[in-house]
Structure formats: structure tokens, C-alpha cells
Simulated assay, not measured.
Amino acid sequence: MKKEDSFDNLYKKIDSTSKTRFNASDRLRLHSKCSTYTIVVISLGLILISLMQAYGLGKNINNDLVTLIQIFSTIAVLVYSLLIDRNDYSNLAEKMYSCATQLGELKQKIYPYLNQPHNQDAYDLFRDSYYSILKLFETHSKNYSSSDHIRARLVMPENYNINGLKWWYSKFDIYSTLLLEFLSYILVITTLVLVLYWVWFGWSFP
């Protein structure tokens, strides 16, 4: 029997995949929330600017750039709405979670076979079940992030020896990847805050 055909290896593979998909589910849920909150914040910003125009509030409220800002903000709301509909983060997160849950159940069924005499029939059954679950919840590769797998490996010290500089590098990789992935939300909200400050207080951009 080859090592890669052992119950230990199959258990490790399922455990890693399950944890990775749980992490992907959390990340996609956060995407869904951030997208929705970004639309809400931009919409509230547009309403606030409209009210400021109605009551003549703000030092730069009559500036020609305000109209341009309103048009751009409206387009931004439309774009984020289309992105939410296209990416369907919430539904994908549910699929990832369901897949991870079923893999977790399969993992528990395999556990009694660890450190026992090899049972080829049982192994073939569990292996086929594993691939069937993956096919059932098949998703596009764009929905995956390297941070999901790295996070899974960090909580599996019994299978992955990640210590010292390698541990710090893994942590840096996770946070830098997530930062780049969610940077657009931060930039949009920050820009909106600066714009509202400029409209209200008349702060001059350098």
C-alpha cells in the first residue's frame, strides 16, 4: 500500500480541505458584508450632500465639483450593486460552508480507521465520497484565496511543521493577501469621508 493511499493521508487531505473551505466561507461572507455596507455608506453620503445642497450647508457645497462627485458616487453604487449580483458572495459562502460541513462529517467517519489495519474497500468508499462532495459543491477557482489554505495549515501543527520565520512569513502572507483583497472597500470609504470633509469644511486638497 502506498503512503498516499493510506487513511492517514486521506484524513489529512479532507481535514485540510474542510478547514480551507470554512475559511473561504468566512472570507466570502465578509466580502458580502463589505460590499453591502459600502453601498449603504455611499448612498448615505449622496443623501447627505443632497440635504446640504437643499439647506445651503457646507463651504464648498456650490462648487462645480460637487455635481461631479454626485455623478461618480451614483456610478459607484451601480458598480458595487452589479459586483454583488455577479459574484454572489453570500450564496458562495453558503456553498463553501455546506461543503466544509459535509467534509467534517466524512472526516469523523474516517477517524476510527486511523492506526488500524488497512481496509481497502472502506478506503475506496471514503475516497469516492470525498471527491463526490467536492464535485457537488464545485466552485470557480477565482473564489479561492491562498490565505484560506495557509490559515488552515497553521491550525494543523500535527500535519504541517510551520515554526520560526516560516510562521511569521505565513502570517504576513495571510494579512497582506487579505489587505489587497479588501483594499477597494477601504479606499472607497476613505475617499468618501475626505470628500464630505472637503464639502463641509472647505478643506483644500494639496
Rank of each mutant, 00 (worst) to 15 (best):
F126S: 00
N143Y: 15
L134E: 07
N161E: 09
S132L: 07
I133G: 04
Q116D: 06
L165Q: 13
N163I: 15
A152E: 05
Y113C: 08
Y130T: 00
G164T: 03
K109V: 06
D121F: 02
H118Q: 07
Q116S: 12
K166V: 10
L165T: 14
L125E: 09
S141K: 15
I150Y: 06
P112I: 03
K142E: 13
E158D: 13
T139Y: 11
L136T: 13
S147K: 06
K142H: 12
I110W: 02
L134S: 05
Y113N: 11
K135R: 11
G164S: 06
R153N: 07
D121Y: 04
Y123C: 01
K135G: 12
E138L: 13
L154I: 05
I110G: 03
Y160T: 00
Y160Q: 02
L165D: 13
Q120S: 11
D124E: 05
N159R: 06
V155P: 05
P112F: 01
A122S: 10
F137A: 05
F137S: 04
P157V: 02
F126K: 01
I110H: 06
H118L: 05
Y131N: 10
T139S: 14
Y144T: 11
I150T: 12
D128M: 01
R127V: 06
S145I: 10
N119T: 01
E158P: 02
Y111K: 15
V155E: 13
R153F: 06
N119K: 04
L134D: 04
S132Q: 10
N163Q: 14
Y131S: 04
P112D: 03
A122H: 06
Y131R: 07
T139G: 05
H118T: 01
I110M: 02
N119W: 01
D128G: 01
D148W: 08
H140A: 10
N159Q: 08
Q120C: 07
K142F: 14
N119Y: 02
W168I: 09
K142Y: 13
N163A: 12
D124Q: 00
R127K: 14
R127Y: 13
F126V: 00
D148T: 03
Y130C: 01
W167R: 15
R127D: 10
M156I: 04
P157I: 04
K109Q: 13
R127N: 14
R153I: 06
N143F: 14
F126Q: 01
E158V: 01
P157A: 02
V155A: 08
K142W: 10
Y123D: 00
N143D: 09
Y123S: 00
M156S: 07
L125R: 10
W168K: 10
Y160G: 03
I150Q: 09
S132V: 02
S146F: 14
R153V: 03
F137T: 05
K166C: 09
E158N: 08
P157D: 00
N159H: 11
P157M: 00
L114Q: 03
P157C: 01
L136K: 15
L114G: 04
R127F: 11
I150R: 12
Y111C: 14
W168D: 09
K142P: 06
K135Y: 08
H118S: 04
I150M: 09
R151Q: 15
K135A: 14
A152W: 06
P117L: 05
Q116T: 09
Q120V: 07
P112L: 01
S129A: 08
M156C: 05
Y131M: 05
T139V: 15
H149N: 14
Q116W: 05
Y111N: 15
N161S: 08
H140S: 13
Q116G: 06
Q120I: 12
A152H: 04
N159S: 11
I150D: 08
